[in-house]
Amino acid sequence: MSEFHEAIGRLAAAQKSSIGAPAYSRFVNRPLGRILAAGAYTIGLSPTQVTLISAAATGLGIVAIASIDPTWWSALLVSLLLVLGYALDSADGQVARLTGTGSLAGEWLDHFFDATKQATLHAAVLVSWFRFFDLAELWLLVPIVFGAVASVFFFGVVGADFLRRINRLQRPGTAAQPAAGQTSTLYSLAVVPADYGLLCIVFLALWVQPLFVALYAALAAINLALLAASAVRWYGSIRRAEAEGAA
């Protein structure tokens, strides 16, 4: 048990920057991931093993969305699996920091499963709505649009970060990683609709069809607006970084 508490203490002092992090990810998922990471470290799991367990939990949740007629217990099951998968998605990187075994291959694997999740979760909602919900066909466009928005959003975040890293590497004397920092609590709350963790919680309402449809459609619309605003911000930040590198 002392090893577990030691790992918790080490992780608390070595957290990632919170810049741009939405509220659920920042205040719930990372602390939960820290506990899971300490547990995984204590029993000897590698970062890759934690990533694979995360992918399995999320995958089971997605399969349950598409295959089970929504009831209170299936909605709870789906939400718990998605929340667990997301927390383990945070834990794998924290295990890597504890063990000093972070790698490009591990980062690629993490992003690979993240991209798979974005591509399949909303497709599962589409299947569920088609099979189990009494909706007009036009409503089926909502998960299609949300899936496209989620995939493009993921590319925008990862692509912008990748290009900024390359830009820093090309500038002599500049660190490959950005300086640590924090985003204000107000900003974290403002962007919480774009937080995957919030979507995991919304699946608790899956068995109450009108409520889930309303919440899911609202999140889809808000995420579409946030994507448009974020795209402008990402493009501007990359242009500024490029200009600074050329100066």
Rank of each mutant, 00 (worst) to 15 (best):
M1H: 15
F4H: 12
F4S: 12
G9C: 08
G9L: 05
L11V: 02
L11A: 02
A13E: 14
K16L: 06
S18A: 09
P22H: 03
A23C: 04
A23S: 09
Y24F: 08
Y24C: 02
S25V: 05
R26F: 00
R26V: 03
F27A: 14
R30C: 04
G33L: 04
G33Q: 04
R34E: 14
R34M: 15
A38Q: 15
G39D: 13
A40Y: 01
A40S: 10
Y41E: 09
I43L: 09
T48V: 11
T51Y: 00
A55I: 05
A56E: 12
T58N: 08
G59T: 07
G59R: 07
A64I: 06
A64T: 12
I65F: 04
A66H: 05
A66D: 05
A66C: 05
I68A: 13
D69H: 10
A75W: 10
L76E: 14
S79R: 14
L81N: 01
L82G: 01
G85K: 05
G85D: 07
D89C: 01
V95W: 07
L98M: 11
G100V: 03
T101E: 14
G102F: 00
G106D: 04
G106T: 02
G106Q: 03
E107G: 06
F112D: 09
F113I: 08
F113Q: 09
A115F: 00
T116D: 04
A119W: 01
A119F: 00
A119Y: 01
T120C: 09
L121I: 06
H122A: 05
H122I: 00
L126N: 04
L135E: 15
L135G: 13
A136Y: 04
A136K: 08
E137Y: 03
L141Y: 08
P143M: 05
P143T: 01
I144K: 01
G147R: 00
A148I: 02
A150T: 02
V152L: 01
V158W: 00
V158T: 06
A160E: 14
A160D: 11
D161E: 14
D161S: 10
D161A: 09
I166H: 13
I166V: 14
R168E: 03
Q170E: 09
Q170G: 11
A176Q: 12
A176I: 06
Q177M: 10
P178L: 07
A179R: 07
Q182R: 12
Q182S: 12
S184Q: 13
L186H: 15
Y187S: 04
S188Y: 06
A190V: 10
A190W: 10
V191Q: 14
A194N: 03
D195F: 05
C200N: 13
I201R: 07
F203S: 15
A205E: 13
P210N: 10
L211N: 08
V213E: 11
V213G: 08
A214P: 06
L215E: 13
L215R: 14
Y216E: 11
A218L: 13
L219R: 08
A225E: 01
L226K: 04
L226F: 00
L227F: 05
L227E: 06
L227T: 00
L227M: 02
A228E: 00
A231F: 05
A231H: 01
W234F: 06
G236H: 05
R239N: 09
R240F: 03
E242N: 09
E242Y: 02
E244C: 00
